[in-house]
Design a protein around this nucleic acid. Structure first.
Length: 773
DNA sequence: CAGTGAGCGAGCTTCCGCTTGACTT
């Protein structure tokens, strides 16, 4: 018989709390929500006042049965789910599903996980706040109505199995809008003039100084004219301005900022960051990783101060509490920080070590003193023109938090971040221009989103929650709306004029523009769905839709609005728009006529087909079948030209012979390939191109694959093979794979030993052929 | 196992937010 049963949301939290509460208390976890709207239909009885129809999902049945058993045996049940909308709803569902008495069940909340805080919480139990629960139900029902009414419209008007929702559709819109800005962008260029100056200062020291001209020249002739003026001009230090400044540390991590910095500093994807953080959390090394709060507990502030004082000295410590700035934050948890500040490093995998250190540094730095800097600007005047040159530099007088941590920025402009130290110069000092160069610089389009910068934007708009950022990124990719891709970029020519020793020379350089690494690109189906949704449901696709409904959820939580009234006033007009779009709108295919093929005179068009974007040559008629070709990964229906479309018909093409057999290059089910003697060889993504691949390279690929196959095969006994696979060596027999017992050398296995393993049925459980639920 | 691309129609797809394992050829 348990005296007290405490239910929390997370098992790791249960473990720590149990230690503080002593033996009269048993602490267990609900593993998040235990009940949800039914899965296979709308789950909302619209006619009955939007009555929600709940069920316990299959994967929660076990937890619920266990909780029910424990609750029956306990004298008092305490529900300690998080103190936010979702947590309150979990408490309410628990009471309903476990058949608890609302009057005697005690609802408590922990503000931090310390003995004091927990004892205090236990001393002041309350009852479930139904207004907060209703705000959650309204949120849940609205999301279900939007998702389950919009998606079927897409199935009818665009393609089956597509999806739309309050969050994902706006995430896709951000990417599509940005892509169109990039498509419409025309780069301008201007000449940036920089000079290297030399002189002798009042101490008699020779100094060199690089400075930038304050004027930019659009036309090359103007830049050249300016350089000509520089010949014979006198240069003088006109002014020196020294300004003190301070820099402050960033707040400790939230989910969103952790994802951004782990991407920028460690190259982690959003999902990777969360899975590594989960490991650290389960190991008790960091606090909870799904949080929107920058708040630190009193205990954390105090121990951080002790560690900083001991490690760096009292001058480096400055205790601060940060205000959470993000929209719609619910602050049920602390910021992400190390559980123990005195542990600078941790054990575990390399990634765990790296992420832990990042979290440690960020949290410690947030409790450190400001850095003191001195910014110097030197202005150089010239006799031949009113135009100036300026040099700026920065000196760190006191490093403060910079000793531990500097936040990275998203800009790929490393030059702009560079801080230089300037030499000592004096006002009125004469300078000689050693070289002056005018370099052509192009403006850049707005940057494409990375996974992490998209999360940042969503958070700014108050869309999505810490627990959903990673799933959102994954959903919009798995629906095919967007894809994470690299682009090699294109070469372009830039001009450079250099003035040295009274002579101007001109050279041309090349630079790579538009190179992208691991960026999110909208795909055709994403753009078509986006345009359809904006045309028909502009309100829901509005960037401020979530902010608007959140305001109403807050009113429901405050008891100032009825939840069913809010839902009803949304659903009326929404439902009408759904019906209108179903009855009036035509199918969307993104079709475009590009022109006519000069060779055959046939019309050339593009559209979204059942299997993806295609270019079509000719029209379907009883006596003629049109030809089709797939678009390339880096092409869009919206921007492809007639010329580009026509080259897509040149595959498969012959590229030469090898060992007396013809080689052809093409694109098949599994991507670009070279075919030779009936066998296929995949091309390397990002390296090879079926349109341009040479005979030599194709032969190289064939040889590489043959070599690889040799390595893969460890031994062969007729119908039994020992192979090297992705997860180590294994045995194949009769199309089934068998695990090799640990400690066995796969190279020494005999046919008899293999048979024994097969007999024993050391079968690896294969899900092949089975449908995943 | 290196396509397909029409149209019919059955039956299926789908949301967001809270939490962990399962399970890899």
């Amino acid at each position: 018989m348990t005296e007290n049963l405490v239910i929390v949301e997370s098992p790791a939290k249960a473990k720590t709390i149990e230690k503080f509460l002593g033996k009269d208390y048993m602490v267990v976890s609900s593993f998040g929500h235990i009940r949800d709207l039914v899965r296979n239909n709308l789950g909302v009885e619209v006619e009955k006042g939007f009555n929600p129809v709940y069920e316990v999902p299959d994967d929660k049945k076990k937890v619920v049965a266990e909780l029910r058993k424990l609750a029956d045996q306990a004298k008092t049940v305490w529900i300690a789910s998080d103190e936010d909308r979702e947590g309150e709803a979990i408490a309410w569902h628990l009471i309903a599903v476990l058949g608890l008495d609302p009057a005697t069940t005690r609802r408590i909340v922990f503000h931090e996980i310390t003995k004091d805080a927990i004892t205090r919480a236990v001393e002041s139990p309350r009852q479930v706040d139904m207004n907060l629960v209703n705000a959650q139900q309204a949120r849940r029902i609205l999301d279900r109505l939007v998702g389950f009414e919009l998606s079927p419209v897409l199935w009818k008007k665009v393609q089956p199995s597509l999806s739309a929702g309050r969050v994902q559709s706006v995430a896709v819109r951000l990417l599509v809008d940005r892509e169109r800005e990039i498509i419409g962008f025309r780069a301008d260029s201007a000449f940036r003039v920089t000079g290297s100056f030399s002189g002798k200062n009042s101490e008699g020291t020779d100094v060199m100084l690089r400075a930038e001209c304050t004027k930019k020249f659009t036309a090359e002739a103007d830049a050249k004219g300016f350089l000509e003026k520089c010949i014979g001009s006198a240069f003088t230090v006109e002014n020196i301005v020294v300004k003190p400044g301070t820099r402050s540390p960033a707040p400790p991590f939230t989910t969103s900022t952790l994802q951004q910095e782990a991407y920028r500093k460690l190259g982690f994807s959003v999902a990777q960051t969360m899975s590594v953080a989960q490991k650290l959390y389960e190991g008790g090394k960091i606090t909870y990783m799904r949080t929107d709060s920058t708040n630190l507990s009193m205990l954390a502030l105090n121990t951080a101060r002790e560690v900083i004082t001991a490690e760096y000295g009292p001058g480096y410590s400055r205790t601060r509490q940060f205000k959470t700035s993000s929209r719609g934050a619910q602050e049920a948890h602390e910021a992400i920080r190390p559980t123990y500040f005195d542990r600078k490093e941790t054990s575990g995998s390399n990634n765990e070590k790296k992420l832990y250190e990042l979290i440690w540094r960020r949290a410690i730095a947030s409790q450190m003193a400001d850095a003191k800097v001195e910014k110097t600007t030197i202005t150089i005047g010239m006799s031949a023109s009113p135009v100036n040159f300026t040099a700026t530099g920065e000196v760190v007088l006191f490093d403060g938090f910079l000793k531990v941590y500097t936040e990275s920025s998203d800009s790929n402009n490393a030059e702009a971040d560079e801080k230089t130290i300037l030499p000592r110069v004096d006002r009125g000092m004469d300078l000689t221009a050693e070289t002056i160069t005018a370099l052509q610089r192009f403006t850049s389009p707005p940057p494409r989103y990375t996974e992490a910068s998209l999360v940042k934007k969503l958070e700014e708009l108050g869309i999505g929650r810490p627990s959903t950022y990673a799933p959102i990124i994954s959903t919009i990719q798995s629906r095919g709306y967007v894809a994470r891709e690299d682009r090699p970029g294109e070469k372009r020519t830039i001009a450079q004029l250099t003035l040295t020793k009274g002579k101007i020379t001109r050279i041309e350089k090349t630079e790579i523009a538009g190179k992208e690494k691991s960026k999110l690109f909208p795909k055709d189906i994403g753009m078509i769905v986006n345009d359809f949704l904006i045309a028909n449901f502009p309100d829901i696709l509005d960037y401020n839709f979530t902010a608007g409904v959140e305001k109403e959820f807050d009113e429901i939580a405050a008891g100032e609005m009825k939840w069913d009234k809010m839902i009803s006033s949304f659903y009326g007009p929404f439902r009408k728009t759904v019906d209108d779009s179903l009855s009036t709108r035509a199918r969307m295919t993104g079709a475009r006529l590009l022109g006519n093929d000069p060779a055959s005179g046939l019309p050339v068009s593009v559209k979204m087909s059942r299997f993806g974007p295609v270019v079509q040559l000719g029209e379907a008629s009883p006596d003629q079948k049109p030809r089709f070709a797939n678009l390339r990964r880096d092409q869009l229906l919206e921007t492809i030209t007639l010329e580009e479309a026509l080259t897509l018909f040149s595959l498969p093409r012959s590229i030469g012979t090898f060992e007396e057999n013809e080689m052809t290059a093409g694109v098949g089910k599994f991507g670009p390939y070279v075919k030779h003697a009936g066998k296929f060889y995949s091309l390397r993504r990002g390296v090879d191109d079926p349109y341009t691949i040479t005979e030599e390279r194709a032969v190289e690929l064939i040889r590489e694959k043959r070599e690889g196959e040799k390595q893969k095969l460890i031994s062969e006994f007729g119908d039994i093979m020992v192979l090297n696979g992705r997860y180590g060596p294994y045995i194949v027999h009769d199309k089934t794979n068998y695990r090799i017992p640990k400690g066995t050398d796969p190279h020494k296995l005999t046919r008899e030993e293999c048979l024994a393993i097969i007999e024993k049925g050391g079968k690896s459980k294969s899900t092949r052929g089975k449908k995943k639920k």
